[in-house]
Protein backbone atom coordinates (compact mmCIF):
# COMPACT_ATOMS: atom_id res chain seq x y z
CA UNK A 1 0.00 0.00 0.00
CA UNK A 2 1.29 3.45 -0.83
CA UNK A 3 0.74 6.32 1.55
CA UNK A 4 0.10 9.13 -0.90
CA UNK A 5 0.49 8.96 -4.63
CA UNK A 6 -0.42 10.57 -7.91
CA UNK A 7 -0.91 8.13 -10.72
CA UNK A 8 -0.64 8.74 -14.48
CA UNK A 9 -1.62 12.32 -13.80
CA UNK A 10 -2.47 14.47 -16.77
CA UNK A 11 -3.70 17.90 -15.80
CA UNK A 12 -3.64 21.48 -17.01
CA UNK A 13 -5.72 24.54 -17.83
CA UNK A 14 -8.26 25.11 -20.56
CA UNK A 15 -7.65 21.73 -22.15
CA UNK A 16 -3.88 22.31 -22.42
CA UNK A 17 -1.76 19.69 -20.71
CA UNK A 18 0.66 21.21 -18.23
CA UNK A 19 1.51 17.97 -16.49
CA UNK A 20 1.97 15.13 -18.95
CA UNK A 21 1.48 11.76 -17.37
CA UNK A 22 3.34 11.84 -14.06
CA UNK A 23 3.24 9.13 -11.42
CA UNK A 24 4.80 9.67 -8.00
CA UNK A 25 4.60 7.86 -4.69
CA UNK A 26 5.21 9.72 -1.45
CA UNK A 27 6.27 8.10 1.80
CA UNK A 28 4.83 8.99 5.16
CA UNK A 29 6.72 11.51 7.28
CA UNK A 30 9.10 12.64 4.57
CA UNK A 31 9.84 16.03 3.09
CA UNK A 32 9.73 16.10 -0.70
CA UNK A 33 10.46 19.23 -2.71
CA UNK A 34 9.51 19.89 -6.30
CA UNK A 35 11.89 22.07 -8.28
CA UNK A 36 11.91 23.25 -11.85
CA UNK A 37 11.99 26.36 -14.00
CA UNK A 38 9.03 28.72 -14.40
CA UNK A 39 6.20 27.10 -16.30
CA UNK A 40 7.47 23.58 -15.66
CA UNK A 41 4.22 22.63 -13.96
CA UNK A 42 5.33 22.58 -10.31
CA UNK A 43 2.33 24.49 -9.01
CA UNK A 44 -0.03 22.62 -11.29
CA UNK A 45 1.22 19.31 -10.00
CA UNK A 46 0.85 20.49 -6.41
CA UNK A 47 -2.66 21.82 -7.04
CA UNK A 48 -3.73 18.59 -8.68
CA UNK A 49 -2.29 16.59 -5.77
CA UNK A 50 -4.27 18.81 -3.40
CA UNK A 51 -7.45 18.28 -5.47
CA UNK A 52 -7.71 21.98 -6.36
CA UNK A 53 -7.51 21.08 -10.02
CA UNK A 54 -9.42 18.13 -11.44
CA UNK A 55 -7.10 15.94 -13.54
CA UNK A 56 -7.88 15.18 -17.18
CA UNK A 57 -6.87 11.63 -16.47
CA UNK A 58 -5.17 9.69 -13.72
CA UNK A 59 -5.80 10.15 -10.04
CA UNK A 60 -4.61 11.08 -6.58
CA UNK A 61 -4.74 8.53 -3.77
CA UNK A 62 -4.37 8.66 -0.01
CA UNK A 63 -3.72 5.16 1.29
CA UNK A 64 -5.03 3.80 -2.00
CA UNK A 65 -8.30 5.71 -1.74
CA UNK A 66 -8.99 8.13 -4.59
CA UNK A 67 -9.36 11.57 -2.99
CA UNK A 68 -11.85 12.84 -5.53
CA UNK A 69 -14.24 10.13 -4.34
CA UNK A 70 -13.69 10.94 -0.66
CA UNK A 71 -15.79 13.39 1.28
CA UNK A 72 -14.27 16.87 1.02
CA UNK A 73 -14.06 17.40 4.76
CA UNK A 74 -12.42 14.04 5.34
CA UNK A 75 -9.74 14.86 2.78
CA UNK A 76 -9.27 18.26 4.42
CA UNK A 77 -8.49 16.60 7.74
CA UNK A 78 -5.70 14.54 6.18
CA UNK A 79 -4.42 16.88 3.54
CA UNK A 80 -3.71 20.60 3.87
CA UNK A 81 -2.74 22.78 0.95
CA UNK A 82 -1.39 26.31 0.92
CA UNK A 83 -1.43 27.85 -2.56
CA UNK A 84 1.02 30.53 -3.61
CA UNK A 85 0.36 33.98 -2.13
CA UNK A 86 -3.23 33.59 -0.96
CA UNK A 87 -5.21 36.70 -0.03
CA UNK A 88 -7.51 37.44 2.87
CA UNK A 89 -9.68 40.46 3.75
CA UNK A 90 -7.32 43.13 5.09
CA UNK A 91 -9.36 43.62 8.26
CA UNK A 92 -9.38 39.94 9.21
CA UNK A 93 -7.70 39.39 12.59
CA UNK A 94 -4.89 36.82 12.55
CA UNK A 95 -6.52 34.56 15.15
CA UNK A 96 -9.68 34.38 13.03
CA UNK A 97 -7.65 33.47 9.95
CA UNK A 98 -5.93 30.69 11.87
CA UNK A 99 -9.26 29.52 13.27
CA UNK A 100 -10.52 28.92 9.72
CA UNK A 101 -8.01 26.08 9.64
CA UNK A 102 -10.26 24.24 12.07
CA UNK A 103 -13.16 24.24 9.61
CA UNK A 104 -12.82 20.60 8.51
CA UNK A 105 -12.78 19.48 12.15
CA UNK A 106 -15.72 21.24 13.73
CA UNK A 107 -17.75 21.44 10.56
CA UNK A 108 -19.42 24.62 9.42
CA UNK A 109 -21.89 24.72 12.26
CA UNK A 110 -20.17 22.84 15.03
CA UNK A 111 -19.05 24.79 18.06
CA UNK A 112 -15.50 25.87 18.44
CA UNK A 113 -14.25 23.32 20.98
CA UNK A 114 -11.41 23.43 23.48
CA UNK A 115 -9.48 21.19 21.10
CA UNK A 116 -10.00 23.69 18.29
CA UNK A 117 -8.82 26.52 20.51
CA UNK A 118 -5.74 24.55 21.53
CA UNK A 119 -4.91 23.79 17.93
CA UNK A 120 -5.15 27.49 17.08
CA UNK A 121 -2.95 28.48 20.02
CA UNK A 122 -0.43 25.81 19.14
CA UNK A 123 -0.31 26.92 15.51
CA UNK A 124 0.16 30.56 16.51
CA UNK A 125 2.93 29.58 18.90
CA UNK A 126 4.68 27.27 16.44
CA UNK A 127 4.84 30.06 13.87
CA UNK A 128 5.82 32.72 16.40
CA UNK A 129 2.64 34.68 15.84
CA UNK A 130 1.11 34.61 19.35
CA UNK A 131 1.80 38.26 19.99
CA UNK A 132 0.22 39.21 16.65
CA UNK A 133 -2.99 37.28 17.12
CA UNK A 134 -5.14 40.40 17.23
CA UNK A 135 -3.35 42.15 14.41
CA UNK A 136 -5.15 42.50 11.10
CA UNK A 137 -3.88 40.61 8.08
CA UNK A 138 -3.49 43.98 6.34
CA UNK A 139 -1.17 45.23 9.09
CA UNK A 140 1.29 42.36 8.74
CA UNK A 141 4.57 42.41 6.85
CA UNK A 142 5.00 39.97 3.98
CA UNK A 143 6.84 37.52 6.19
CA UNK A 144 4.32 37.72 9.00
CA UNK A 145 1.49 37.23 6.57
CA UNK A 146 3.14 34.11 5.20
CA UNK A 147 3.55 32.76 8.71
CA UNK A 148 -0.08 33.54 9.51
CA UNK A 149 -1.17 31.44 6.53
CA UNK A 150 1.14 28.63 7.55
CA UNK A 151 -0.38 28.84 11.02
CA UNK A 152 -3.80 28.40 9.44
CA UNK A 153 -2.59 25.33 7.58
CA UNK A 154 -1.06 23.95 10.77
CA UNK A 155 -4.25 24.52 12.77
CA UNK A 156 -5.89 22.23 10.25
CA UNK A 157 -3.59 19.51 11.68
CA UNK A 158 -3.18 17.67 8.40
CA UNK A 159 -1.00 14.57 8.03
CA UNK A 160 0.15 15.76 4.65
CA UNK A 161 0.89 19.40 3.98
CA UNK A 162 1.33 20.74 0.45
CA UNK A 163 2.92 24.17 0.16
CA UNK A 164 3.50 26.23 -2.95
CA UNK A 165 6.60 28.36 -2.41
CA UNK A 166 6.13 28.93 1.30
CA UNK A 167 9.24 31.14 1.37
CA UNK A 168 8.17 33.76 -1.17
CA UNK A 169 8.38 37.30 0.21
CA UNK A 170 10.57 36.13 3.07
CA UNK A 171 14.08 37.27 3.84
CA UNK A 172 16.72 34.61 4.44
CA UNK A 173 16.11 34.61 8.19
CA UNK A 174 12.39 34.02 7.81
CA UNK A 175 12.97 31.50 5.03
CA UNK A 176 14.99 29.40 7.42
CA UNK A 177 12.49 29.95 10.17
CA UNK A 178 9.64 28.59 8.05
CA UNK A 179 11.61 25.64 6.72
CA UNK A 180 13.03 24.76 10.13
CA UNK A 181 9.49 24.85 11.46
CA UNK A 182 8.37 22.39 8.76
CA UNK A 183 11.39 20.21 9.49
CA UNK A 184 10.59 20.19 13.19
CA UNK A 185 6.95 19.30 12.55
CA UNK A 186 8.16 16.55 10.28
CA UNK A 187 10.52 15.16 12.91
CA UNK A 188 8.31 15.53 15.96
CA UNK A 189 4.86 14.87 14.54
CA UNK A 190 5.61 12.84 11.43
CA UNK A 191 4.15 15.52 9.14
CA UNK A 192 4.53 14.65 5.48
CA UNK A 193 5.58 17.74 3.53
CA UNK A 194 5.43 18.19 -0.21
CA UNK A 195 6.41 21.65 -1.37
CA UNK A 196 7.54 23.73 -4.27
CA UNK A 197 10.73 25.74 -3.74
CA UNK A 198 12.77 27.92 -6.02
CA UNK A 199 16.02 27.89 -4.09
CA UNK A 200 17.97 24.71 -4.90
CA UNK A 201 20.17 24.89 -1.81
CA UNK A 202 17.27 25.33 0.57
CA UNK A 203 15.55 22.45 -1.19
CA UNK A 204 18.63 20.28 -0.83
CA UNK A 205 19.15 21.23 2.78
CA UNK A 206 15.63 20.58 4.04
CA UNK A 207 14.35 17.74 1.85
CA UNK A 208 14.63 13.98 1.94
CA UNK A 209 13.80 13.92 -1.70
CA UNK A 210 13.89 16.28 -4.65
CA UNK A 211 11.69 15.98 -7.69
CA UNK A 212 12.78 17.95 -10.75
CA UNK A 213 10.27 18.87 -13.43
CA UNK A 214 10.69 20.37 -16.84
CA UNK A 215 7.90 21.11 -19.32
CA UNK A 216 5.48 18.97 -17.39
CA UNK A 217 7.68 15.93 -17.29
CA UNK A 218 9.76 14.27 -14.63
CA UNK A 219 13.48 14.85 -15.16
CA UNK A 220 14.99 13.63 -11.92
CA UNK A 221 13.73 12.19 -8.67
CA UNK A 222 15.73 11.11 -5.65
CA UNK A 223 17.84 12.14 -2.70
CA UNK A 224 19.30 15.68 -2.88
CA UNK A 225 22.85 14.33 -3.30
CA UNK A 226 21.87 12.45 -6.42
CA UNK A 227 19.48 14.94 -7.98
CA UNK A 228 21.74 17.92 -7.46
CA UNK A 229 24.28 17.18 -10.15
CA UNK A 230 25.92 19.38 -12.75
CA UNK A 231 24.19 17.38 -15.45
CA UNK A 232 20.66 17.56 -13.98
CA UNK A 233 20.90 21.26 -13.24
CA UNK A 234 22.01 21.90 -16.79
CA UNK A 235 19.11 19.86 -18.17
CA UNK A 236 16.46 21.34 -15.92
CA UNK A 237 17.47 24.98 -15.67
CA UNK A 238 19.88 25.37 -18.55
CA UNK A 239 22.67 26.76 -16.39
CA UNK A 240 26.19 25.76 -15.57
CA UNK A 241 26.71 24.93 -11.93
CA UNK A 242 29.27 23.49 -9.64
CA UNK A 243 28.29 21.05 -6.91
CA UNK A 244 30.06 21.11 -3.59
CA UNK A 245 29.76 18.61 -0.78
CA UNK A 246 30.64 20.19 2.50
CA UNK A 247 30.34 19.17 6.09
CA UNK A 248 29.24 21.85 8.48
CA UNK A 249 27.97 21.44 12.04
CA UNK A 250 28.35 17.70 11.57
CA UNK A 251 25.92 17.51 8.64
CA UNK A 252 26.75 16.61 5.05
CA UNK A 253 25.37 19.26 2.73
CA UNK A 254 25.16 19.39 -1.01
CA UNK A 255 25.46 22.89 -2.35
CA UNK A 256 24.93 23.99 -5.93
CA UNK A 257 26.76 27.07 -7.03
CA UNK A 258 25.30 28.51 -10.22
CA UNK A 259 27.99 29.75 -12.56
CA UNK A 260 26.12 31.19 -15.49
CA UNK A 261 23.85 30.71 -18.47
CA UNK A 262 26.14 31.48 -21.41
CA UNK A 263 28.77 28.87 -22.07
Amino acid sequence: MSYFRVESLRVGYAGQDVIKNISLEFDRARIATIIGPNGSGKSTLLKAAGRLLPPYSGGVFIEDEPILAMEDRLVARKLGILPQSPTAPADLPVHCLVAFGRTPHHGFFGRFSREDQEAVNWALEATGMEDKRFKRVGQLSGGERQRAWIAMALAQKPEILLLDEPTTYLDIHHQFEVLELLQELNRLHGLTVIMVLHDLNLAAFFSHRIIALKEGELVADGAPQTVLSTETIRRVFGIRARILCIEEEGIQRTVAIPLGVRS
Partner: peptide, 8 residues
Protein backbone atom coordinates in the same frame (compact mmCIF):
# COMPACT_ATOMS: atom_id res chain seq x y z
CA UNK B 1 -8.37 27.37 -3.48
CA UNK B 2 -8.14 27.89 0.26
CA UNK B 3 -11.87 27.24 0.67
CA UNK B 4 -11.60 24.00 -1.28
CA UNK B 5 -8.53 23.03 0.72
CA UNK B 6 -10.57 23.47 3.89
CA UNK B 7 -13.12 21.00 2.61
CA UNK B 8 -15.76 23.37 1.26
Amino acid sequence: DIARGLGL
